[in-house]
Design a protein around this nucleic acid. Structure first.
Lengths: 156, 156
DNA sequence: CTACATTAATTGTATATACATATATTTGCT
DNA sequence: AGCAAATATATGTATATACAATTAATGTAG
């Protein structure tokens, strides 16, 4: 369905305005898709994001701040998210000995196993994007990167 | 900054995978932009969305379900959001006399006033999109509409 | 070396979503 | 009419974000 039908709005003020709403709407849809894949594994999207970041670090331990910097949603409350992952034993956290304000966070073997099981299902979400050519995909990526670099966003 | 720099990830598995992350990341950025504009008016994005829907109805009263259908975020808990807007006196709600299960919800004069004050600031967010040509904007819109209509999403 | 600012992380509280369940009303079947 | 199914909304509880404030450790200026 076109966005107009989805949200029952006959027309938008401009094509640009529609694009803004479309981005938010589509991302909400994508978020629900993620949820449905992660739910059987007792993971939420931000928790999954953290596990992916830690796996990507290839054994290197990361501080909480470093994880936050790498997250898709910057406003995540990483501290409490890590708490929950530690309880599930998918993540380890200990105080950094050099700087005792920091913590050293890593993914456990169990955490890696859960991620492994999820790789397939998550890839199948990515496959939804394959109807776009690589060239088109690059163009949309470039557009999004540019969008975030207009004047106004300096203030955010 | 390119997404790679934003989330400190050197490279993505594919351009399509980057696009998926980019959509989520950019929408989160857009969300924070909205928050910063709405905050001085004591509104949140979903509450603002509801006011916009009611203004768009041009005086027609809408049921709670109808509002939900028109929202950007379908999983919003409209019932409790309306509660808060009623408390602020920006929205009115009464039981529908024909079908007492439904409610008839409308925007108040005060609600319209708040919206009026916000039109400028919100438009300035939309202006961030103007660096794209109308043709390109249409293409991205079409892409997003198509994306949501691949096989998998039937299940969601 | 002490006092003050800075930094890293945690915590408190309000708002919102996710999902299941409950309540009230209406519809439809016999 | 009587009763089950369907519909519209509300509520309970867990998770997460938003923003402010706090705590603990470190850095630094004098």
């Amino acid at each position: 369905m076109k966005l107009e039908e989805e949200i029952k709005q006959e027309k938008f003020k401009s094509e640009h305005h529609k694009l803004m709403i479309n981005l938010l709407f589509t991302s909400s849809w994508l978020h629900r898709l993620q949820l449905s894949v992660l739910r059987p594994y007792d993971l939420t999207p931000p928790q999954y994001n953290i596990l992916r970041i830690l796996r990507g670090a290839k054994g290197e331990l990361l501080s909480l701040g470093e994880i936050t910097n790498r997250m898709i949603d910057r406003s995540s409350n990483t501290s409490r998210l890590i708490d929950k992952l530690v309880i599930k034993k998918w993540v380890s956290r200990k105080t950094c000995s050099n700087d005792r304000r920091q913590s050293e966070i890593g993914i456990t073997t169990e955490g890696l196993q859960v991620l492994g099981q999820l790789d397939g299902p998550i890839d199948s979400i990515t496959e939804q994007f394959l109807f776009l050519s690589v060239k088109e995909t690059k163009e949309v990526n470039q557009f999004l990167d540019q969008l975030r670099n207009q004047n106004l966003n300096q203030t955010i």
